[in-house]
């Protein structure tokens, strides 16, 4: 599914070279729920950016779904992000001027689906996250947890190969955080691969597999086994 081989990323300024990732190799299988953890400065964000094709690696190979994506140009990478990757950001990154429906619609527009197709996908995705009733609301009219669920719907709507989550609960209180995690688990259970970057070991524990980064390298083999938990349907009810 996701295959990184000896990925390095070097940031250069006139004075210093920073090695954010050093020959990182990692593979994630279809259906997995992997948590990437590590302290600040360990290269988590760089990993996330490279995994999400937001940045390119300085060296190394990266393939998604069996195709090499390391040498793609900007347009091609946009296309892959749009079709194969569903992003979930720490600060949700919903567009404040658009209502929830239109927010979920954004990636579908770039995909070039026709109106009926988009409507179907949006409704389905919002249904999945339990926000079907709120589709005409603006982000500012929703709670943080609801906003993150809307963002998840946006990530799901395009039918991505995997979800890439960046501290998905970082801006949420514990109740809402738990609801969002439950939702992610449910989505994973339904078959979507999830790669989650977090510094919170508590959260990481809910993934199948943990990968720890330290100084841009894998710190140790996966110490945890997956701990499965059953999502509680009641928790998916919107919190007003």
């Amino acid at each position: 599914m996701l295959e990184m081989k000896e990925i390095s990323r070097v940031y250069r300024t006139d004075l210093v070279e920073t090695h954010a990732l050093r020959e990182l190799s990692l593979s994630v299988d279809t259906g997995e729920f992997v948590a990437v953890t590590g302290p600040s400065g360990s290269g988590k964000t760089t990993f996330l950016n490279i995994a999400g094709l937001l940045e390119t690696a300085t060296s190394g190979e990266y393939s998604l779904d069996g195709t090499d994506v390391s040498g793609l140009n900007d347009n091609q990478r946009s296309r892959i992000r749009n079709e194969k990757i569903g992003f979930i950001f720490q600060s949700f990154n919903l567009i404040p001027d658009l209502n929830i429906f239109d927010n979920v619609d954004v990636p579908l527009r770039y995909r070039g689906f026709d109106g009926a197709e988009r409507r179907g996908r949006i409704e389905k995705a919002l249904d999945q996250v339990g926000l079907a009733a709120r589709m005409k609301h603006l982000p500012s009219q929703l709670s943080g947890g609801q906003q993150q669920r809307a963002a998840i719907a946006r990530a799901l709507a395009g039918g991505p190969s995997f979800l890439l989550a960046d501290e998905p609960t970082g801006n949420l209180d514990s109740l809402m955080a738990r609801q969002v995690m439950d939702l992610l688990e449910k989505i994973n259970n339904e078959g979507t691969t999830i790669v989650m970057v977090t510094h919170d070991p508590e959260l990481a524990r809910r993934a199948h597999r943990n990968v720890q980064l330290l100084d841009g390298q894998l710190a140790s083999p996966d110490p945890f086994s997956a701990s499965q938990s059953t999502p509680i349907e009641a928790d998916l009810q919107p919190v007003a």
Binding site: N75, S78, P107, Y110, R154
Partner: peptide, 16 residues
Amino acid sequence: TKQIGTRRAIGARKRD
């Protein structure tokens, strides 16, 4: 800026 970055992240090309 943030919004533009987000759009780019979720698949908008430069020309979009």
